[in-house]
Design a protein around this nucleic acid. Sequence first.
DNA 1: AACAAGCTAAAATTCGAAAATTCAATAATA
DNA 2: TATTATTGAATTTTCGAATTTTAGCTTGTT
Lengths: 221, 221
Amino acid sequence: MAKRNGSSTLSENVTKKLRHDILAGQYEPGSPLTVSELAKSFDVSVAVVREALTRLATQGLVLQNPNHGFSVKTASEEELKSIIEARLINESAALRLSIAHGDLTWESNVIALHHKLSQTAEYEEADQKLAIREEWSDIHRQFHYQLIAACPNALLLDICRRLWDLSEFYRHWSFQQQPTRDGRAEHKALTDAVLSRDSDRAVDIFRTHIQLTADNLLDNL
Amino acid sequence: MAKRNGSSTLSENVTKKLRHDILAGQYEPGSPLTVSELAKSFDVSVAVVREALTRLATQGLVLQNPNHGFSVKTASEEELKSIIEARLINESAALRLSIAHGDLTWESNVIALHHKLSQTAEYEEADQKLAIREEWSDIHRQFHYQLIAACPNALLLDICRRLWDLSEFYRHWSFQQQPTRDGRAEHKALTDAVLSRDSDRAVDIFRTHIQLTADNLLDNL
DNA sequence: AACAAGCTAAAATTCGAAAATTCAATAATA
DNA sequence: TATTATTGAATTTTCGAATTTTAGCTTGTT
């Protein structure tokens, strides 16, 4: 019987927590998400967990098999390619629209986030392996989201957000990515292109950026 | 205590029924969807209705306001434009991929559905007004879906499907569309372009087709 | 009158348990 | 032996009721 905070609902909180855990790689891809177990661990009723899982299933992070319950999304090379392709299609379009509509405040926010990103360490040592720092991951996400934030099409932005979640899932399940590429240079170039309102160049850099990231993940899958 | 049929769940059935009712224009945009009322009318428990509404809310057909329940999606000119734009982006891409990957069976299905569509009446008299026949609506949907069905990117197809649902919603809430355009000629041209594997021409016709449909709806909103 | 605090009914949310479903192991039958 | 029932435990799904939240109404105060 957990308390609720603010005006939000238990379901919302559990949904958030579960999504975070899944994206953070807490559960193996494909592993079952037993409703009663989760209910116990979150200290809520099964109805709440069920609602959260239903939401995540509709978003594609969780698989639902009628009368067989829920499980964490599986990972496959083919799906990762699909996600990347869908991101290229939607995020490129959103980027063009954002560049066309962005105002001074948006520009400033892009600059601010790029600065923040450039000053944040990407990797940390964990169990003798390099791992991506969660703080960097957050800022990285915010940076990319800010680039398209001025796109006036809310639906398109929502699609982009969900696709980002899906690709985020793979970050944690493609084993040890080496810091081979100069991601910083790419982010810098992207920022410059966006600020000079050069859609074609920005989209071009973005395509390369995301494609390289994908290749990196695919190599390690 | 309704029975369940087959290996599906009550939740699934109620979700389908509710989606159908919403898309068929059974409820006014923005009108409240009271969980207990729906539970009574469907003869199921509140949990089932809640799960269905949660799903539809995640898909965007229903609005959820924490602690204030659910309501039917509202309609606005701005949103319709967003939906159309998102459809253009995603469905065009899917169409190109489908044309590039489609095999003989796919071709045959396209031809078959186009024939079916061309032989089905679009309008019917109802309350002294012309209304779109549900049978035609179904086939029309199947036809457009078949065009992109050979696209190997399942995620992209899913996005297209959901966007179609969203635009379907507007069909019933933009008052009386006149059969001004020659939709049949457009469908024929689209089919021809697709079968001759001319992506550019197909996408071009598709863009015009959907844009005209949108303008028609916008005029009547 | 204007405003705040308290009350109440309706609705949303959450709960804990009942019912249904699945799967595998065991027993029964041909 | 091979095949078909049967049973039962684990899990999912559904239920009906309890709890919590909200919004409107009433009452009391300045």
